[in-house]
């Protein structure tokens, strides 16, 4: 038995339990906030780099889905337990994979992502370098018009310009 796409899509939608499809007005709830402002600031920074799994494209810091709430609380618990920022992220990644990291890790799979822009820039620079090299030695100023050319142009310009200028 194969479910038609429509049904699967519906189920996928329903599975996002309680996921709000829009930006919520307020995601982080006051009850979650840690009393230690330094830790809280770290928690906010970490949460804004972790993707909410059930939302369309939001960090857990921006989402008011229940799972995002749970993960925010978890992040704060780990911080209180003395984890470093990297350890907290590792903890979440160990369970949900690299998908949760909004800043992709620097691994083999992402080399192209991280080096791509630089490579593009270098390639473009090289192309421009070739462009300049080809014209090196040639003065940018054009050669003066030959007599023949001068004659033709004076014929061209000699006739009063028969054109209308709309103003």
């Amino acid at each position: 038995m194969k479910l038609p796409f429509g049904i699967l899509a519906t189920i996928a939608m329903l599975m996002m339990f309680g996921a709000d499809m829009q930006h919520p007005a307020i995601a982080v709830e006051p009850s979650e906030v840690l009393s230690n402002p330094v830790l809280e600031a770290r928690a906010r920074a970490i949460s804004s780099e972790l993707r909410c799994l059930v939302c369309q494209n939001e960090s857990i810091d921006e989402s008011n889905a229940p799972l995002a709430h749970d993960l925010r609380v978890l992040v704060r618990k780990r911080l209180l337990a003395g984890d470093s920022n990297a350890q907290v992220k590792e903890y979440i990644v160990a369970r949900y994979g690299n998908y949760v990291l909004l800043k992709p890790p620097f691994i083999e799979e992402t080399y192209i992502l991280w080096f791509g822009p630089l490579a593009l820039l270098l390639a473009a620079t090289a192309a421009v370098f070739v462009f300049y090299k080809r014209s090196a030695g040639v003065p940018p100023d054009p050669a003066p018009l030959s007599d023949e050319e001068s004659r033709s142009i004076s014929i061209l310009l000699g006739e009063p310009g028969e054109h209308e200028e709309t103003r």
């Binding site: 690299n98 990291l101 992709p104 992502l113 791509g116």
Partner: peptide, 22 residues
């Protein structure tokens, strides 16, 4: 590149990743 990279990685069977604001 950043917008479509998750698509590439997924299509090549290298897992799913996210590319976000950072």
């Amino acid at each position: 590149l950043g917008t479509l990279y998750p698509l590439f990685v997924d299509a090549l069977g290298l897992g799913k990743i996210s590319v976000g604001p950072p």
